[in-house]
């Protein structure tokens, strides 16, 4: 089972000026192991900053981030990103354009033997529904296929926590629906803990076990999802 994420009184500031409000201010949350959390809010509310701080790309001014009891970030301690065992799926996929899909997925598996690496890459390609497309370069794949490769690449080293930074925002409506449901199923089936950032309320309630609402750097709520919300990824009902 993957470990629990704790964030306590997190504060992230880009400006040293005291008059500038911090990007993230006094945010605390706990994400139990195996659950998927969604941070919801408008652009510039600080949700991506939290994700980047968890990944180790932003220093924290105050507070602490722990994963399974291991301190990842505090004002004094900053574990480098490569040692956090955290996977990340970026908004535009951020696939390495000089590597094909299989090589992208194998990127974080350098320590595995060749045969084991090939086996894992093939299983992941199968898992994300891209079996047989491993030799395609990113520019030869559709937007949805690129995001599937990005998910497989992030899952490949078996991270303890998966971060998803608006992974469907650049996709068309239909692809977004189909891929959203698939991604949730894949993450759930693998038992991963994941935290996703989105500005789409329906998407947050459909995918997250917990939903956090953010505004101007503050986390206003962090609660289990509303079951009553219409699931945008559900198959449309046939009219009688």
């Amino acid at each position: 089972m993957t470990p629990t994420l704790h964030i306590e009184d997190l504060r992230i500031a880009y400006s040293r000026s005291a008059t500038q409000p911090p990007a993230v201010d006094r945010v605390s949350l706990t994400l139990p192991a195996g659950e998927m959390g969604c941070l919801l809010g408008p652009s510039g509310c600080g949700k991506t900053s939290i994700l980047r701080a968890i990944a180790g790309f932003e220093p924290v001014k105050a507070g602490r981030i722990t994963l399974g009891g291991v301190l990842l970030s505090s004002p004094q301690i900053h574990l480098p990103p490569e040692r956090r065992r955290v996977g990340m799926m970026f908004q535009d996929g951020a696939l390495f354009p000089h590597l094909d899909a299989a090589e992208n997925i194998a990127f974080g598996l350098r320590r595995l033997e060749h045969a084991a690496r090939t086996d894992r890459v093939n299983r992941l390609l199968d898992l994300v529904g891209l079996a047989g497309l491993g030799s395609r370069y990113p520019h030869e794949l559709s937007g949805g296929q690129q995001q599937r490769v990005a998910l497989a690449r992030a899952l490949a080293p078996s991270p303890e926590l998966l971060l998803l930074d608006e992974p469907f925002s650049s996709l068309d409506h239909a692809t977004r629906h189909r891929l959203g449901a698939d991604v949730r199923d894949i993450i759930k089936a693998a038992g991963h803990t994941a935290i996703m950032v989105t500005h789409d309320e329906a998407e947050a309630h459909a995918l997250g076990d917990r939903v956090g609402v953010m505004k101007t750097g503050r986390l206003l709520s962090w609660t289990p999802r509303r079951e009553a919300v219409v699931d945008p990824f559900a198959e449309p009902q046939q009219a009688a």
Binding site: G56, P80, F90, D92, F107
Partner: peptide, 27 residues
Amino acid sequence: QSRRLLEAARTLGEGRWGAFRRVAWPL
């Protein structure tokens, strides 16, 4: 070059030198 490519390499276990050698340099 996109900052995200290097960040992706870091989340996949590469240090600064590894991210340069395996991503920035080939590109």
